[in-house]
Design a protein around this nucleic acid. Structure first.
Lengths: 113, 113
DNA sequence: CTCCTATCTTGACAGATGTCGAATCAAGGG
DNA sequence: CCCTTGATTCGACATCTGTCAAGATAGGAG
């Protein structure tokens, strides 16, 4: 698992190591939005919460933050649009899970060999 | 090298793995600004350029971007204030280098075990 | 000292972002 | 059906961000 480029639609996420070969402008353009999504304390914590479980209901995420449900939804949408998480509605509740490929791509970029 | 917390002033940067134990609000508050700094394509490419060499002169960074020197300076300042790079003036030129501890802290957070 | 070059700082501005309240949509339970 | 609860979307607003032109600094070279 965590083999890169295994999920359709998020293939070819990987790149060089940041410290080995400099990233191209195109790679930077493609990868920066993911870092940006993690660049807010609330979203970073959300992403971490989601990543630490197979999946997580919004109803379990919300109470961890002193924010309106609108804001919670907004941040989750940002994470989703960055390609870091995905979600599905099951009955009354909506569940989010991490996309390991995306996290692995960022991890690989930062990896210090 | 790249041993964590070896540089004074940037100690205790590390945290849990994002996927193992969820980060605390405090850790998120502390680490998010670094991700944010990498969340702009220009800065991500700059950071990568700087990281791929022992150090890099601003005069070598500028020509890689179609931006005013004011904007270049601004982005470098952002990276510096995020704790990702450091700089020093030597004569006419200013040199930037990566702070491996900071990158390692982010890498550790994203590491998928 | 004076000029030139490299870099940074300031001021300004359009556009993006984080936040909320209110309205809306989705799914069940009476 | 209507009502309740979970979640998203919409509209609005203050703040932050990326960018540039112009001015300020810092070191050499002459």
């Amino acid at each position: 698992m965590t083999t890169l480029a295994s999920t359709p639609g998020s293939a070819a996420l990987t790149c060089c190591g940041l410290a080995t070969t400099p990233v191209t402008a195109e790679d930077a353009q493609r990868l920066a939005p993911m870092f940006k999504a993690l660049g807010d304390p609330v979203r970073l914590q959300m992403a971490s919460m989601i990543a630490s479980r197979p999946e997580l209901c919004v109803c379990e995420i919300s109470p961890a933050f002193d924010l309106s449900s609108a804001t919670i939804s907004h941040h989750l949408k940002t994470l989703r649009e960055a390609g870091l998480v995905d979600s599905e509605r099951r009955g009354t509740f909506v569940y989010y899970w991490i996309k390991p490929d995306a996290v692995a791509a960022l991890s690989a970029l930062l990896a210090v060999e």
